[in-house]
């Protein structure tokens, strides 16, 4: 199965060149020296529960826990536990219920299969694969949140003309520091907007409307009014029954209701 999310970009190594062209001017005196943000260290998952706790668990419960712990942030489907451990369904239910009650396991909703019971170590954050990623809330797509961030991105593009995801991200943050969108989220949103042709992905030439963006950078600008639709002006262009229509058939142009309406043949 292909990975659902792009891997984290390497945070170490050479600092990336800024997208924005350096403007040569003396720095304003009041501006504090930029403090480089600490590189995010990928948080290691929690260790397996200490032996002191594990040893207090009854054997079967301990086994179930270990298996589920090993499944990490993807969790484990109850059916899979049953098969690998060769347990009867009621037994498994009893074991997992006890573990959930102790606060050792939790049940999570898998966005792809809402009917499935998936268990996970209670201390682990479920992976985006399970939660559906940042735009999901309780396994449902948060369409309002998506619409809101699209609006904000568009505002930034309108303000900046052409801009890189980084520039849009900074702009959104400046306007609402509490919004807390990650650069990846902004990038994803910009990409869907380019798919919708609301925006257009292009490469900066460093000149004209791109003068604020370093040449060669991928950036986004307004997509312009959509073109196309040449055949939508005539009834057959968008007709749902075109496959059933033939010159001498039951459905044919002279008997066609769409044509009658279009030509206002009501005389």
């Amino acid at each position: 199965m292909p990975p659902r999310k792009r891997p984290l970009e390497p945070s170490s190594g050479m600092p990336a060149q800024p997208d924005v062209k350096p403007v040569i001017s003396p720095p304003p005196k009041s501006a504090p020296a930029p403090v480089p943000a600490p590189a995010p260290v990928p948080a290691p998952g929690p260790e397996i529960l200490p032996a002191s706790i594990l040893n207090n668990l009854p054997g079967p419960e301990r086994e179930v826990y270990k298996r589920i712990y090993e499944a990490g942030n993807k969790g484990m489907w109850s059916q899979d536990i049953r098969y690998t451990m060769k347990l009867a369904a009621p037994t498994l239910t009893k074991l997992t219920r006890a573990l959930v009650q102790r606060g050792i396991l939790k049940e999570v909703t898998d966005v792809r299969h809402r009917g499935k019971k998936v268990f996970m170590d209670a201390r682990i954050e479920p992976s985006p694969e399970i939660t559906g990623g940042t735009w999901y809330h309780n396994g449902q797509l948060d369409t309002d949140a998506v619409a809101a961030v699209r609006r904000r991105c568009l505002d930034q593009i309108d303000r900046l003309g052409a801009a890189t995801p980084d520039m849009v991200h900074k702009g959104v943050e400046r306007e609402d520091p509490r919004a807390g969108y990650s650069i990846d989220q902004i990038r994803d949103i910009l990409q869907t907007m380019a798919l919708d042709r609301v925006l257009e992905e292009c490469r900066s030439t460093g000149e004209g409307e791109f003068s604020a963006v370093r040449a060669g950078r991928v950036c986004y600008r307004r997509g312009g009014a959509p073109q196309g639709g040449m055949i939508e002006g005539i009834p057959c262009g968008v007709c749902p029954r075109i496959d059933e229509c033939s010159p001498d058939g039951v459905i044919s142009p002279p008997t066609c209701v769409y044509y009658k309406k279009w030509l206002q043949m009501d005389f």
């Binding site: 659902r4 792809r112 559906g132 990623g133 735009w135 797509l141 949103i189 869907t192």
Partner: peptide, 27 residues
């Protein structure tokens, strides 16, 4: 429109979940 454009621009087979992720549309 969004989904179709994704498939055309990718020019290759795309898995259902990846379509959901990339288009940020309801499953």
């Amino acid at each position: 429109f969004t989904i179709f454009r994704l498939l055309v621009t990718q020019g290759c087979a795309v898995e259902t979940d990846q379509i959901i992720d990339t288009t940020i549309l309801d499953k």
